[in-house]
Amino acid sequence: MAKQVPLVDYLELGDDPHLVANECTSCGARFFDRRNACASCEGTAFKKAAISTTGEVRAYTIVAFAAPGVPVPYVAALIDCAGTSVRANLLNVTPDPEHVTLGMKVRLITEVIGTDDEGTEAIGFGFEPLGG
């Protein structure tokens, strides 16, 4: 199997791919990047927290016009994963408003976004409809 790297460092690969956040140990606020202090409570201690791999679409847009090199249309969404908001594309769904609905239940999946000169695959993530 080719060597793999995650598209971003908050995507954990392996048998059970999932997103990981820095969680404030005082108030529970979660951040996908590093913070000097919690933006909510100013606490300075964080621990790693696994994000639920299922969620609900709270908002979406179907991008039809983007920079050259970005394939369109694609569905960008805000997904509520058991209380933690996640930004991702919706995959394996027809990109039109008849097929994408607010409140639809989705689950995290990974996909190969490309292979570099050393044969390493970059792995991205998105969400697909549950039971779809």
Binding site: D9, V63, A66, A67, P71, Y74, R87, N89
Partner: peptide
Amino acid sequence: YGAVAPVDGRIGT
């Protein structure tokens, strides 16, 4: 975010 490639259009918009 330690991104290995551009994320616009890959992780939302």
